[in-house]
Design a protein around this nucleic acid. Structure first.
Lengths: 145, 145
DNA sequence: CAATCTTACTTGTGAAATGCAAGTGAAATT
DNA sequence: AATTTCACTTGCATTTCACAAGTAAGATTG
């Protein structure tokens, strides 16, 4: 179900172009990966992720993802400093995109994380269902502290 | 089947990161779309594609895609000025990635090209088979001129 | 409850990527 | 022989990115 355009105008009406304009940079999809696969939900967690995004870029990408309705944020009720970021339905729907990108690279590049790849290859549908399941509750997991 | 790494080192071993490092810019996937879906095969065709890539960026992206084994090039036997670009098997294997990106955007953004989207939604497998079929011959189609 | 620490950012600055216009050389066409 | 086409380069201005440092609000500590 198409919605109003997030940005005033696309370079073109091609849906692939729209995806590229929203997600075609070196960080956005990694942030989504961290949320989807690793359960990261705070700025600090993203900052400390392996690829070492710069803090200003992270702030910018989070704003962008929110502006496009892919994630939302809310205060952590148990710690007023924290913002908890969540995937929206639109964000969760990126799971198939991430899956295919992972499988492509795993098949053609020298990469690691074979466990994830095995799981994705074994049963793509089930993997996607698991991601949806994980985010279905939408309750904020508090750190066990 | 993992191969030797194209670039000396990735930011991380995550396959998603590898994909993002190779394809995570605003043009590479559009070039692949033009080849895969529209049958474009020359520099001039890419240059004149709707989104208007700059000539120096196009040259750079084609080099990059070749360096990563996603496309190859050869002289047009019937016109020594032209280079004919072709997708490799690795490039063709990006079809599922493109498909999911198209379906995601078509479902969540206000985009056009509904015919393509309908076709992809109707039968994803068949659509992928058609792309493979189209590129299976690997013969150079000469312009009917 | 004041000092310190955490968290989520900003700000400043240099480096790199991008975009635009114009040019170049080899091959084809007229 | 002159012109056109093709696949790029080159030069330069603009934008984005990256790194380091700083800041303000809220939480924790002694």
């Amino acid at each position: 179900m198409p919605k109003k355009r997030a940005s005033p105008k696309w370079r073109s009406g091609c849906p692939l172009n729209a995806s590229v304009e929203v997600l075609g940079d070196r960080w956005s999809l990694l942030i989504i990966r961290d949320m989807m696969l690793r359960g990261f939900r705070t700025y600090k967690e993203f900052l400390e992720s392996y690829e070492r995004i710069a803090s200003n870029i992270l702030a910018d990408r989070l704003q962008n993802l929110m502006a496009h309705g892919i994630i939302t944020s809310e205060r952590d009720p148990s710690d007023g400093r924290k913002l908890i970021y969540s995937l929206t339905a639109k964000g969760i729907d990126l799971a198939p995109v991430l899956t295919e990108m992972v499988l492509w690279a795993a098949g053609h590049e020298d990469t690691g994380n074979q466990e994830l790849v095995r799981q994705m290859r074994k049963d793509k549908k089930q993997f996607l269902a698991a991601v949806r399941q994980r985010w279905a509750g939408e309750q904020i997991r508090l750190k066990s502290k």
